[in-house]
């Protein structure tokens, strides 16, 4: 990584099938040393060697931030994606050696909040597991509203209810239960911050409802990792390193750059953090900007690209890398 933090060589200590869609993985350091402590909301990038294709997917850390014996993540099986989650589900077994990045937090709690109001949808529960453990240890005030499809797919519901009692509220879509967001947002004490992690639609709904009720935008936090989309293959030329290659349909531009042996900076690999921003020297065609980082004007100008999630259609793309 560009800012030089050392990676963490790990061994898979445990793989647990949480439900039909979700598996939990526990990693420990190969050298037996302690993992770094982290802040709730952090993710790590997991490196996979998928039969010759290097995949690097970000996953939120869900284990207790003070647990330095190991890290835990939960992975939801995505049948239609590019294969990172499928690889984790079908190939990763206890004893396997893997590599993790240092934790990075792009979804931190606001430490000044008088109360933390957490809203999770499905697999979006994972960062909150770590955050709740941290807030609880600090004596902070929080409440979780967790929406899942069905009791069978309600990952960690029992654990959460046991641990945090009436501060945990669970809603099952199949039982036609829905978060009564307007009532919930009406009664929050001044100084409450909202955190939402889940599907795109849920994040948009929470943000719009809060804004319409007079919540300041800076009191509403969200995290949505974009999985790099699959697309058509395209050619790219790297000016600084003098390389040209094809980006495959199920490969991200960033992965293709790395596969060509060119070092490129990154942190989130999900279009959110801005670290991989790259100058476009020539663009004969159309960049499919899939990120949350560039401004609309930057996107329209076709002078910048976020290679972690964005793709290209056209005759020629030359990058300053």
């Amino acid at each position: 990584m560009s800012v030089g933090a050392p990676k963490i060589p790990v061994v898979v200590a445990e793989v647990v099938e949480v439900n039909a869609l979700i598996k939990r993985f526990r990693f420990q350091r190969r050298d037996g040393a302690a993992m770094p402590v982290f802040s709730g909301g952090s993710h790590v990038v997991v490196e996979m060697d998928d039969h010759g294709t290097r995949r690097m997917n970000p996953y939120s850390l869900m284990s207790h931030p003070a647990d330095t014996l190991g890290y835990e993540i939960s992975v939801r099986r995505d049948e239609v994606g590019r294969g990172g989650s499928l690889y984790m589900h079908t190939h990763v077994r206890p004893g396997m050696e893997m590599v993790l990045s240092q934790p990075v937090n792009l979804f931190p709690l606001d430490a000044r909040a008088k109360k933390h109001l957490m809203i999770a949808g499905g697999i979006g529960i994972t960062p909150f597991l770590a955050q709740m453990a941290q807030v609880e240890a600090m004596g902070g005030r929080f409440e979780l509203h967790y929406s899942v499809r069905s009791p069978a797919l309600g990952a960690y519901v029992e654990h959460l209810q046991e641990q945090y009692g009436s501060r945990v509220h669970v809603y099952y879509d199949e039982l036609k239960q829905q978060i009564d967001l307007k009532t919930l947002l009406k009664s929050q004490p001044l100084g409450t911050h909202i955190y939402v992690c889940g599907p795109k639609g849920m994040i948009a709904w929470v943000k719009a409802t809060a804004a319409a009720m007079g919540w300041p935008a800076l009191a509403v936090h969200s995290e949505e990792f974009l999985a790099p989309p699959v697309g058509l293959a395209f050619e790219v030329q790297l000016a600084a390193s003098g390389k040209s290659f094809t980006v495959q349909p199920n490969q991200s531009l960033l992965e293709a750059i790395e596969a060509a042996g060119v070092e490129a900076p990154y942190l989130c690999r999900g279009g959110a953090c801005g670290q991989c921003e790259t100058d476009v020297l020539r663009c004969d065609g159309h960049i499919e900007h899939n990120d949350h980082w560039l401004t609309d004007a930057q996107k329209a100008s076709h002078t910048k690209i976020m290679p972690c999630v964005s793709r290209f259609r056209g005759a020629a793309l030359i990058l300053d890398r």
Partner: peptide, 10 residues
Amino acid sequence: VLADAHMGLQ
């Protein structure tokens, strides 16, 4: 007033 207030106060 601030202690009694809820989010949504302008």
